[in-house]
Amino acid sequence: MSPDRSIIKQGIADALPLFVPAIPFAFVIGVVIVDSGVSPVVGWSSSWIIFGGAAQLTLISLLGSGAAAAAAITAALVVNARHLMYSAAMAPVFQHQPRWMRRVGPYFLIDQQFALAILRADDDPKTFRTYYLSAGLVFWSMWQITTVVGIMLGPIVPVSWSLEFAVSILFLGLIVMGIDKYPKLVAALVGAGVTYLSAGLPNRAGLLVGAFVGILVGTVAERLRE
């Protein structure tokens, strides 16, 4: 087998198990799209236009709950601001890549892709590129398919199941699994508390106030810890 094919196989084999945790997100996104009143085709287009589960869930849930578009867009972008860290970490690796790859690469840079790619930072440029695109295309195609399945199952799920609550459970799981030090716990609790206190603000602006204060207090707690 040529080295290229073995690298492609490696990329696929590494990506498939990492996709499993994304399956419930894909399913719930499908159901939320159907519930939200956003047209299914438009809702699904977020899978290839945004290609990021947490931001898609945030945007569609908020649009469906009657939030102003500007507030929903801002919230979804804030959710995805963590990608700036990935971009900065991957930038040196991508300097050895051709221009087309530097343009295409960021589109695939989801959480799981970053976790795999950063481990391959020392590969030669061609090997890295082959691996990166193989894994990225696995995540991408699986995401397109599973979100379509979610949308098709959406109308079958009775409204009385209140499956939109699943979004909250999934986000709680993301928070809990991401907390590796107490300032992150502080950021989460303050974010929730301040959002609760500013619930009366129009256009769900309380969400952004809560998020901002949470980030601020988390940063301060981190400084105090050092």
Partner: peptide, 27 residues
């Protein structure tokens, strides 16, 4: 970089609460 680590926990927990607020501003 320090602040970016707190984006995910702060925003996601704010979202959980925001999604439980009805259109009248009640939780």
């Amino acid at each position: 970089l320090v602040a970016l680590q707190f984006v995910a926990p702060a925003v996601l927990s704010a979202l959980i609460v925001a999604l439980l607020i009805d259109s009248d501003g009640n939780i």
